[in-house]
Design a binder for these strands. Structure first.
Lengths: 210, 210
DNA sequence: TGTGAACCCGAGTATTTGCTCGGATTATTG
DNA sequence: CAATAATCCGAGCAAATACTCGGGTTCACA
């Protein structure tokens, strides 16, 4: 099926009409992905559900991977916006509050179209363009690392990287796990409490032992 | 490509010769998966690399999913054996030692054909038979939960489940992350140290506050 | 050593699916 | 109001790929 895609360039939408078309195609892609899963998602089906012709789809997306990658990028961007909004709040000098804020960002992120998120994470193979688009974690980790170095200049850069990795990894894993396996713990906030019990002492100690 | 697979039953290998064939096919599947990735893995290619005919392959595996699922099951089983071997050692009454043993089990597990593990985790879509085959985490979690209830009978069953989830999730996520992103921290043991710093206080406290 | 069962073979078939291309339709510009 | 560009269309091609089937080969066992 999908060969060694040499990314053939496509035209950019310039008029309002075509930008609308692209948007409709992406929305349809999301719906089809969620409903049928990745490998039963075909470009023809997406075009049909979007109400545009297959020809139009290929005007703007050179292949299926590029199509899904575009959607994934948009999704990740939306997540990042939420995280940024939380990370920029200036009052988390207190380590406990900082961790809590991070955690809330993680939980929040998982509330953006969780069904799509699940498909992207579980079914879409991380290959080629998709690998980069789906690599949320490392972006986030770097972001945390930067914040850390800004707020706790005493930390060596190696330590900052390590602590950022631990925080990001655990938050991402725990929230994701809760979403798919124990949604009731999300509602009740139990997961949040438990994660704080795990991460706050760790983080406090990491800051102390500089 | 692959339709709504209605699992058509295939014959079981009974003679030594055919068992050998099945083994060879599975080994080839692993090699092909690692080398070409999931969607460029075709049944025809697997048969060719295994040195058997495509007909023989379909004697024992009804379709591609079943083939990969069989391989995944075998892999998971191998992981579980290692984990069991560690978990059954009787001397971890000390909470710190218990966590350390768990962690070592996690790290150990990731040393079983890590390349294959990576492909299975990152590329193979969790659908149908594959979803179950790849669900290592929940099996492990239940195993930890049982061990926990046996060794710390003071814990309520809800707490045991929660603590097991946290331990399993974090160990799995951290080790996996280290493997793919910072292998040097695996060599030096830094990841292990750091994970212990995170998990031991948490676990000790969880046991104390019964 | 004969016979049926288990096993193996691989060219070929039936589908699926990504994607093109020539031409119609709509917008923009001078 | 041309003329040119942008957009849209969808039948159909080419290639890939999962899977079958009829027939040959090897094994178990009486």
């Amino acid at each position: 099926m999908v060969r060694e895609k040499s990314a053939k360039p496509r035209k950019q939408p310039v008029q309002k009409r075509s930008r609308q078309t692209v948007a409709v195609i992406l929305q349809a892609t999301a719906r089809v992905l969620v409903r049928y899963g990745y490998d039963r998602t075909t470009t023809n089906l997406v075009a049909e559900k979007a109400g545009v012709s297959i020809g139009s789809l290929y005007e703007y997306f050179p292949n299926k991977q590029a199509l899904v990658a575009a959607l994934a990028s948009a999704h990740v961007e939306e997540l990042m916006e939420r995280v940024d909004r939380v990370l920029c709040v200036p009052e988390e000098d207190d380590s406990a509050l900082f961790v809590a804020a991070l955690l809330r960002a993680g939980l929040d992120a998982h509330r953006v179209n969780p069904a799509l998120h699940k498909v992207l994470v579980e079914q879409v193979p991380r290959i080629g363009a998709l690998a980069a688009s789906l690599d949320i974690s490392s972006v986030l980790q770097r972001k945390i690392e930067a914040t850390l170095q800004r707020r706790a200049p005493g930390l060596s850069s190696a330590r900052a990287r390590m602590v950022a990795l631990v925080l990001e990894t655990c938050i991402e894993a725990l929230t994701h796990r809760a979403v798919v396996e124990a949604p009731e713990w999300l509602e009740t906030g139990e997961i949040e409490t438990e994660a704080l019990r795990l991460l706050q002492p760790y983080f406090a100690q990491a800051l102390a032992s500089r």
